[in-house]
Design a protein around this nucleic acid. Structure first.
Lengths: 320, 320
DNA sequence: TATCCTTACGGAATTCGTAAGCATG
DNA sequence: CATGCTTACGAATTCCGTAAGGATA
């Protein structure tokens, strides 16, 4: 029994039981993977994978259980590595952040810059993706802190904590008829062709929910994953944009051609959340970074959340 | 990084940082241990052990943290092995029980026999020792279920559940003056030279506490770890014996030479507890055995207890 | 037939034990 | 000087990649 075998099994499951792919992903030979897994199964006395002839079909029942243990072990090995880093390089190392475009582009620049100023030896790597990608990257230890608006809650194996609140803004060209309206109604917005986020991003679900509640049908002209793209199409006159207020913070008018109107009263407040893998060991600078994201994210708050078992308890005890 | 290194570090700590002993215990060469640990420290970039010249002195601060991870990993590896056993040999395997003499001699024979009748392919191994030994054997995966009267509560890393209640009995020769007394008082008992358990065994602490409370000084003539020895000396006239009622269940008189009197009213009720390692994976037959120890020890009760985090919650929700 | 897992085999790297070296108490 | 950790070295083993075999879809 050894750690290689564990890694192979784990990766094989992630790659949908395709050992050829697994071998490529781990930069080794396919027979090596095959042999290692076979040997592990031999030693444990169980089939982890059910085979159909020479193909892997599915994970067996004992395999499921074994996998849980393997995941726990490999997670702890990752912790061990981080413990090593933490103590060997004092306040140095690599901070891997998994996040969405919106956060990376509009929210993270400042805290990241602050972190670099405070701890210059920390290297920051941003991994962009969908909220689902963010969750996955946390779970497989690609990243050690995640940030997104939606759906990080309720991912088993993760803990999430509220980070900051924001609302949507309506963005229209300066000469647009809604540019004069201080506080647009949902009907007025519904009347326009809309340019906004993809369904899995940045509070899009809130938008859909609001229209549904009011029994209005939104006319979505275009969906994009980032506000820069959305603003570009709004400038072209494709419709009214709905983006996060963060995306217009610095250039609400950007040359005077666009006008932004807060519409939190229509779609409600949104909350960005930071997430960690449950049971993870976090290095000093991770706590330092979290504190820069929100003053509420103090070390004890995070430690308590991470140490909790599945059911999250008083995690959200503070509101934003 | 590999599992051997983890095992070596763990064992080295258990053997008080003596690598020579560690090597012997693990049936390998001492330089092998030394090298493996050095390599692990090298890879992690930390010193796990603080050295004084060429001797290991103590565990460093990062070493403490690393050790926690290592313990978790090795515990889960043990679980993995058990998962293998569980599924490969249906209802077969080895059940290792850690317990004290009293339990092994007077309480366990019946449930063990029942288990063997029910699941003949399960092999039972009894590991006897002090309650502290029992705790240790559970923690280092020598045994997977523990049974003792005292001190299994409050061992970090273990969960314990009440198993059965019992009281002490006073044992005297048939011609002894107390043989006629149906319900002896504490004063009467204190007047006799006493033969009873060693301080760490079978409710001895309750005995001491009762005398202390009554400001009586007990005259302990002899201490032993098991009731058989105690009864032997009582027969020789060395004094009155105080043993568990279990020890006189079958032969209260054993040839008519000894008389037993319940003295629960003097020393209070005692509770034997079963214990498991927190987070352990238990095979089917372990649950089956637990159910034979007490009908209250059902699978869901045990599973809930084992899954709990440190602070035990409703563990003791039932009384005996 | 294309994909994909297992088996076979051989060279290379690793492992591990014995022996020697050296520091502590 | 006795104990105990580290370094040196060499034999044996294990590891791992390429090539071939066989099964599925």
């Amino acid at each position: 029994m050894n750690l290689h075998q564990f890694r192979f099994v784990q990766e094989a499951v992630r790659r949908n039981l395709n050992l050829t792919e697994t071998a490529k992903a781990l930069h080794t030979s396919q027979p090596g993977i095959s042999r290692a897994i076979l040997e592990l199964e031999e030693e444990l006395g169980i089939d982890i994978f059910a085979r159909h002839g020479k193909r892997l079909r599915r994970v067996t029942e004992p395999g499921q259980l074994a996998l849980r243990s393997i995941e726990l072990i490999m997670g702890e090995v990752a912790n061990l590595r981080r413990i090593g880093e933490e103590f060997s390089k004092q306040d140095a190392g690599t901070l891997s952040i998994a996040t969405t475009h919106s956060q990376a582009r509009y929210f993270l620049p400042e805290p990241v810059a602050q972190l670099r100023r405070k701890l210059p030896k920390v290297q920051v790597v941003l991994h962009q993706g969908t909220p689902a990608d963010v969750a996955r990257m946390l779970l497989d230890d690609t990243a050690e802190i995640g940030l997104a608006t939606e759906s990080l809650t309720d991912v088993p194996g993760l803990v999430s904590l509220p980070c900051h609140a924001w609302q949507h803004v309506l963005v229209v060209p300066a000469r647009h008829r809604l540019a004069q309206v201080e506080r647009p109604t949902l009907e007025q917005v519904a009347a326009e062709p809309l340019v906004t986020y993809h369904p899995s991003f940045s509070g899009r679900s809130r938008i859909d929910a609001a229209f549904l509640r009011a029994r209005l049908k939104a006319n979505i002209a275009l969906e994009a994953i980032d506000a820069d793209v959305i603003k570009t199409y709004v400038r072209l006159g494709m419709g009214a944009g709905l983006v996060s207020e963060l995306a217009v913070r610095d250039d609400p008018v950007s040359g005077g051609d666009l006008v932004a109107r807060p519409v939190g009263h229509l779609f409600g407040p949104n909350t960005s959340r930071v997430a960690f893998k449950r049971g993870a060991y976090l290095r000093n600078f991770v706590f330092a970074f979290a504190a820069l994201l929100s003053e509420r994210l103090t070390r004890p708050v995070i430690e308590r959340a991470i140490a909790e078992r599945e059911g999250q308890a008083q995690t959200d005890s503070f509101d934003l």
